[in-house]
């Protein structure tokens, strides 16, 4: 199934409206799932389930929203901040996500800010359109 980024966005928007009970005009490409749209832990699974259904793809655990395995590794996190090693692990695990400011202030409490609508679109785009 091939789909343009705009079509992917429309579908992702619909998924988030249903999963999080937000209005569609609240969901922009820049929206952060937790901070802006109020997503909690179970919502991430809900979102993954819905994305799998809508786009007919399989999303392995920790692929779209990797957090658990990275955060629980002492090599990657030290005193509540990501280490150099942790950051490069994040980059490798989350090629669909721009780290941006997080690289200069890799506070683990801000990890949630990386989970954005744009990251979901990139992820789905890769899955659907990668040759």
């Amino acid at each position: 199934m091939s789909m343009s980024r705009d079509e992917i966005f429309k579908n992702v928007q619909e998924v988030l409206v249903e999963a999080l009970g937000v209005d569609d005009d609240e969901v922009s490409k820049e929206s952060r799932l937790m901070e802006d749209l109020g997503a909690e832990s179970i919502d991430f699974l809900d979102i993954v389930f819905r994305l799998e259904k809508v786009f007919e793809i399989k999303i392995p655990r920790e692929e779209l929203f990797p957090a658990e395995t990275i955060m629980n590794n002492p090599d990657f996190v030290e005193n509540g901040k990501f280490t150099e090693k942790g950051l490069s692990e994040l980059k490798e695990k989350m090629p669909h996500t721009k780290l941006g400011d997080f690289e200069t202030d890799p506070d683990i409490n801000k990890l949630g800010n990386l989970f954005t609508v744009d990251a979901i679109i990139n992820y789905v785009d890769n899955k659907l359109n990668a040759a």
């Binding site: 699974l45 809900d46 389930f49 259904k53």
Partner: peptide
Amino acid sequence: IEMLTDEAAS
């Protein structure tokens, strides 16, 4: 059951 995985179900 719509979805059933190791960690959750909908």
